[in-house]
């Protein structure tokens, strides 16, 4: 157990060091494009969005929950990229020829991606706060938001890592990534509530786990615990299923790739 922890800590520190060496990439990790969605999209659609439909004081306050979960989505789906590079340049082989638990590499990645994602979510919430969006559930609510984000993130990162291990080249990886992320966003309640969507889009969006996560985060920001709790309970059930499925599939791919 002590050895296991030693491996995971060393591997996690490597991800942190890599990030800290790339000053630009660190800056852009914190000041991420997702902020532009919040700031520009949120303010741009202020008057175009019907408050009767969004049921929120402002469009930006409606959008905050969506941007939080979009951040989780982007980070999660990109979570396998570094492993992909390690696989391609042979560093992964070097790691795998040492007597480590096979799962340490994967776990270190989860820890790193979840930590970075949580920091980014906090930045999003802080910027939203500057635009007058205050989560009505306070700090416990923020903690709940982070928890929901992590539950969703674990499954996404598992998908991403499984993809990293199974694609032939990183070109394939990034095209799949680009192809997945926009429909995931538009076919969810991130930008518009399901009730305001064209029927077929609303129908598809119900099957998107992202919708469930957003629908739990949004009342935590806008309404309060009483309205949020049923959604939070529901999203935990959905995410447990989602994560179990992703981890099961991911573990199979991983075992085939690394043995």
């Amino acid at each position: 157990m002590k050895e296991y922890w030693q491996e995971i800590r060393a591997l996690t520190m490597r991800w942190v060091r890599r990030l800290s060496r790339e000053k630009f990439s660190m800056l852009f990790t914190l000041v991420q494009p997702m902020l532009f969605w919040l700031i520009f999209f949120g303010n741009l659609f202020q008057r175009a969005a019907d408050m009767q439909v969004t049921q929120a004081a402002s469009y930006i306050s409606f959008l905050t929950a969506g941007v939080v979960i979009m951040t989780v989505l982007n980070n999660g789906l990109a979570g396998g990229v570094d492993l992909l590079f390690d696989k391609e340049n042979g560093f992964l082989e070097r790691l795998m020829s040492t007597p480590i638990h096979r799962s340490s590499v994967i776990l270190s990645r989860f820890i790193f991606v979840m930590t970075i994602t949580s920091l980014q979510v906090l930045v999003i919430l802080a910027v939203a706060w500057l635009f007058g969006v205050q989560p009505v559930t306070g700090f416990p609510g923020v903690a709940a938001i982070l928890f929901i984000g992590m539950m969703f993130g674990v499954g996404l990162t598992a998908i991403s890592m499984a993809m990293a291990f199974s694609v032939k080249s990183h070109g394939d990886f990034f095209s799949v990534l680009g192809f997945l992320s926009l429909p995931m966003i538009f076919l969810s309640s991130a930008l518009v509530p399901l009730t305001a969507m064209p029927g077929w889009m609303g129908f598809l969006a119900q099957f998107n786990p992202m919708t469930w996560a957003i629908d739990a985060v949004r009342p935590l920001i806008l309404q309060g615990w009483t309205e949020a709790l049923p959604h939070v309970g529901m999203v935990i059930v959905v995410m447990v299923l989602f994560d179990a499925l992703c981890l099961y599939g991911g573990a199979r791919v991983f075992r085939r790739a690394i043995g």
Binding site: Q6, E7, A10, M13, R14, R17, N89, G90, L95, P99
Partner: peptide, 24 residues
């Protein structure tokens, strides 16, 4: 492994420190 299997962002010492931990 072949030459490319190096993490460009880590120093030489950090490579050895990482492997020291992986070898417990």
């Amino acid at each position: 492994p072949q030459e490319r299997a190096i993490d460009r962002f880590l120093t030489g010492r950090e490579h050895l420190e990482l492997l020291a931990d992986l070898h417990h």
